[in-house]
Amino acid sequence: MNTVIRASNIIKTFDLGEVKVRALRGVDLEINEGDFVAILGHSGSGKSTFMNIIGCLDVPSSGEVYIDDNNVANYSRDKLATIRNKKIGFVFQSYNLLSRTTALENVELPLLYNPEVSAVERADLSKKALERVGLGDRLSHLTNQLSGGQQQRVAIARALVNEPLVILADEPTGNLDTRTSYEIMGIFQELNEAGKTIVIVTHETDIAKMCKRNIVFKDGKVIKDFMVDKPINAKEELAKMPKQEDVLV
């Protein structure tokens, strides 16, 4: 199996003037192609900081981060932007979609910053990504006309559209109810089965159990790293739940 992301001895210190916060105190991790990882931990454990560093949104104070064999620890802003554009797909807790903009245009966004993709390809790829998350019939809906679950699915389509090496999701189900959370997890499982590498940050154990591998952070260090025995299938779980006829989706 190919290593997609390799982090070695990552230290991250935030200098807040009077105090220095040591968010990461030497993290070594490898994430391989086809992995489906849940990163767990209490708030302040450093899990989000780690996620930002492997997502090239932030740089470590020391240590090395290899993404697809590029050591990005010392990359310039523009080079990091290119890595994010081509190798990484982000899903955020609060969706971060452009308001009053259609689903299709939101999904097109990463391709807009890739000069190699033509306008026709862009629309085509975005449409396919939206179909993949089950929103093929909502291409021209504005984001504020969509439900929370649908908005997160648009965000997943956006993370998919550039065919990234890895999809990083920061608390993707944090703003959603259980039922919608499982729907979203179902999509992630489907994508993973199709070969996508996915890393999720979460603090919900039931969500973590739907992933194949769990990594637990505590006080800036990895304290546990294990394969989940039998990952729960989100779709089966969803089928067991009572139907919520009174809730409009």
Partner: peptide, 16 residues
């Protein structure tokens, strides 16, 4: 600001 952050996250360079 958040929109700018998002655009940067999906690959916009400073120039863009």
């Amino acid at each position: 600001t958040r929109e700018i952050g998002l655009r940067m996250a999906v690959g916009a360079k400073s120039k863009n």
